[in-house]
């Protein structure tokens, strides 16, 4: 199907993101009688609850693909090159599921993903919850490609004083991270009550413009007595601790050139993520490997 690409939107120059699905709204934010305004890849969109459910359109009337899935409204501005991701845990009986509330951040979307993958900041930015001194060492873990493209990090272990609302005291939490799309990442962490069950958190980052994004999160926790409202509050507390860090990063776009920023061994997942973005050919929200970094 021929898609009309308006020359005005710089997002159109990144075919990877243009032809991919992105979350544009938490269904809980939509109303029947009023439009919810947002922007995707510099294109203004309007969403609302219609007779047939949640729907969205481009403010300029050009065609738009939309889907409802996992509690969110998704949109694709171009022709979807791959289907919506599959979240197996969403259908699992008994899981406590909650959206985290969408939060705008003045930084490029890939920076938000990379922060989600980062282990070294947990004991500082999220001190008293996801880490604390003196347990600051990031123990070696394994990183490799995901089948079908993406990144998988396994064998991560972090001491967490309050890993989640259900935690009764600190413990060494097993973690896994994956990046399944350029701007979609998830983590699995051992549940405090049933340590062999995984609590899952998905992060969907909506690229508003090259230097602005909206973070949408989805929690799919093992049943441990925690209410959805408490999951949401914990997630908001944690993410809002990251927001000023993200907004104090310079440049706002993620530099992809080797040597632009200096990783250490603990940053293996982030190194793999930057290489994945290069392999995907991402051009939006990043400073490509050939360009000079402007600080």
């Amino acid at each position: 199907m021929a898609e009309i690409l308006t020359g005005a939107a710089s997002g159109a120059r990144d075919p990877v993101l243009w032809n991919d699905w992105h979350v544009i709204a938490d269904l809980a934010a939509l109303r029947a009688g009023a439009d919810f305004a947002t922007t995707l890849l510099d294109v203004p969109l309007l969403a609302r609850l219609g007779a047939a459910g949640a729907q969205a359109r481009r403010a300029d009337g050009a065609p738009l693909h939309t889907e409802v899935a996992y509690g969110f409204l998704w949109a694709c501005l171009g022709a979807p090159a791959r289907p919506l991701i599959t979240i197996a845990e969403y259908a699992e009986a008994g899981r406590t599921i909650a959206t985290g509330g969408s939060v705008g951040v003045h930084v490029a979307a890939p920076r938000v993903v990379e922060n989600f993958l980062d282990l070294g900041h947990l004991g500082y930015v999220h001190v008293g919850y996801l880490g604390e001194e003196p347990e600051t060492m990031v123990h070696p873990y394994r990183v490799g490609p995901l089948e079908g493209g993406g990144v998988l990090a396994t064998g991560c272990k972090v001491y967490q004083p309050v890993a989640s609302p259900a935690a009764q005291g600190g413990y060494m939490v097993d973690y896994q991270y994956c990046v399944v799309r350029p701007l979609i990442t998830c983590l699995h962490k051992a549940n405090p009550v049933a340590r062999d069950a995984w609590d899952v958190i998905y992060l969907f980052v909506q690229p508003v413009s090259e230097e602005r994004s909206i973070a949408h999160t989805l929690m799919l926790f093992a049943p441990d007595g925690t209410q959805p409202a408490d999951l949401r509050r914990f997630q908001q507390l944690i993410f809002l601790q990251d927001k000023p860090i993200l907004e104090n990063q310079t440049p706002r776009r993620l530099p992809l050139a080797d040597g632009a920023e200096l990783p250490i061994a603990a940053d293996s997942t982030s190194v793999a993520y930057r290489r994945y973005l290069v392999a995907e050919g991402l051009a939006y929200g990043v400073i490509p490997a050939g360009a000079r970094v402007a600080a």
């Binding site: 990379e114 000023p244 104090n248 990063q249 310079t250 440049p251 920023e261 200096l262 990783p263 600080a295």
Partner: peptide
Amino acid sequence: WEDRCPHRGVRFSA
């Protein structure tokens, strides 16, 4: 100093 940590570019002034 240049206001930028060489690790991930966070401002030193923060």
